[in-house]
Nucleic acid binder design. Structure first.
Length: 463
DNA sequence: ATGCATGAGGC
DNA sequence: CCTCATGCATA
């Protein structure tokens, strides 16, 4: 699941925006370096989201390259509470919290703001970021100071209006009424001349409930402007075709609210699936996106039922204070990845692999994971734990046997026992059945490994 | 109790 | 990427 080498800890170091991959959101400007901080365990005043005075801006940050779902992902397959069984895990990177302004330069505006699409497994897994700590405390503990990128006024927020490769309403059934238009309006040239249908009306101060954005569930961006430079120009208020009210509002929105945060979010492809249409929905949606900034994809998955409930409640409420309901979401959030329960057959297969190769390399782990249909990290962790278990079991015997190590394998492909290297486990401490889960692996012998591995793996390894 | 997940520290 | 210690969900 997680690759520690790529998972800076939230608690120990700031999020390194610079490590993010190619990022379309580097058009973000530099202004507005006002940090946006959250006290531990305290949700921000909702007004901060909507009051320019209170919300001085968002610091720039680079975007990240993410693919939330595998190419064959089907939202309907992912049900609440169904995150445990072996399935590939596509982490969504939660922002780690930075105490400094990311060194992101204002780049030229790309003409195509399409989100980067991870095409390989490795790409998908690259942004493996945790928002978790293992203290047993709630998420609120993790809500440290966080800075947000700034969206330069010259860059239209429409940059963020991406059209997702796939919309899976079933993943968020409660927001299915916000049907994406991108799926049925993929042709920028076919876009209407009208401005985005949303007509934001930034409040002069503080909360105005859901009135910040015009609440109209059926209103969605009319075109994939992110891929249409012309519409970008228009939406930035520099259109030569005049400036309609909505355009003015649009421009005002851009200038008044540094939605670089959201913009940045859009580089997290996970949200492409729904955020583009949610974003102008209402303040709840904004809050929702804010939450997303705090969470990893996997946590989002875990949180889905809770967030869904929160959204449902929020939709029916006119009280901005209900935003604090999100607090409960954090409180109720479990922090750990749901434990993977390996089936007996899979476990046996892993054992067989382990017997022959207790320390598979990266390539072998990948192959094993493919063969068994497990996450690579699940396999990796399994081997780590298995080795740990072996040593743990060997330790008491070790004391008795004074280093008499003998190889002992219970693999059907086993070869005759033989004295082995120092990494072996003692066998003289026990002699009979049942066979202990204590193996004396022959380490790193290609010929032995090949015997145990799946033919495909053998070919892979020998090829 | 077992075993998967996580984090620290190291190479 | 590893080991090691430990957390913690689950059978």
């Amino acid at each position: 699941m997680t690759d520690r080498s790529q998972t800076p800890e939230v608690q120990s170091r700031p999020y390194d925006f610079s490590r993010s991959g190619a990022c379309s959101s580097q058009v973000l400007g530099q202004e507005g370096n006002v940090s946006f901080q959250l006290p531990h365990g305290v949700l921000p005043d909702p007004s901060l989201f909507y009051s320019k005075a209170a919300y001085g801006g968002i610091t720039p940050g680079s975007a990240q390259t993410f693919l939330p779902f595998p190419p064959d992902y089907r939202g309907s397959d992912l049900q609440a509470g169904d995150f445990g069984q072996p399935k590939h895990w596509y982490p969504f990177p939660a922002p780690e919290y930075t105490g400094q302004i990311p060194g992101v330069t204002a780049a030229t505006q790309p003409t195509n703001m399409s989100p980067p699409i991870a095409e390989t497994r490795e790409q998908i897994r690259l942004p493996d970021i945790k928002t978790e700590e293992d203290t047993g405390e709630g998420y609120s503990t993790d809500m440290k100071a966080q800075q947000y990128p700034t969206l330069a006024p010259s860059t239209g927020m429409t940059h963020g209006v991406f059209y997702p490769p796939a919309w899976n309403p079933s993943f968020w059934p409660g927001i299915t009424h916000i049907a994406p238009t991108g799926s049925n309006n993929q042709n920028p040239s076919a876009s209407s001349a009208s401005s985005p249908s949303m007509s934001p009306s930034p409040p002069s101060n503080g909360i105005q409930g859901n009135s910040f954005f015009s609440v109209n569930s059926n209103q969605v961006p009319a075109e994939p402007q992110a891929q249409n430079p012309a519409s970008n120009a228009r939406s930035s208020g520099s259109s030569s075709g005049g400036c309609s009210d909505s355009e003015e509002n649009w421009s005002s929105l851009q200038k008044s609210f540094r939605l670089g945060t959201i913009y940045n979010l859009f580089d997290c492809n996970f949200f492409l699936a729904f955020a583009q249409n949610l974003i102008f929905e209402n303040c709840w949606s904004i809050m929702f996106l804010y939450i997303a900034l705090q969470l990893s994809f996997k946590n989002m998955c875990k949180l889905k039922p809770l967030l869904q409930r929160w959204l449902d409640e929020a939709e029916t409420s006119d009280n901005p204070q209900d935003m604090y309901k999100i607090e409960r979401v954090f409180v109720e959030t479990r922090k750990r990845k749901r434990r993977t329960s390996l089936e007996g057959a899979v476990r046996s297969a892993l054992e067989a692999y382990f017997i022959k190769c207790p320390k598979p390399n990266t390539q072998e782990i990948t192959q094993i994971s493919d063969d068994l249909g497990l996450e690579r990290d699940v396999v990796r962790v399994w081997f780590c734990n298995r080795r740990q278990k072996g040593k743990r079991l060997a330790l008491p015997l070790d004391e008795e046997c004074e280093g008499q190590y003998y190889e002992q394998s219970h693999s059907p492909l086993n070869m005759a026992p033989s004295p082995i290297q120092s990494q072996a486990y003692p066998s003289s401490g026990y002699t009979g059945a049942p066979p202990p889960t204590l193996y004396m692996p022959q380490l790193h012998r290609p010929d032995v490994l090949k015997q145990a591995l799946h033919p495909g793996l053998v070919g892979h390894l020998t090829g």
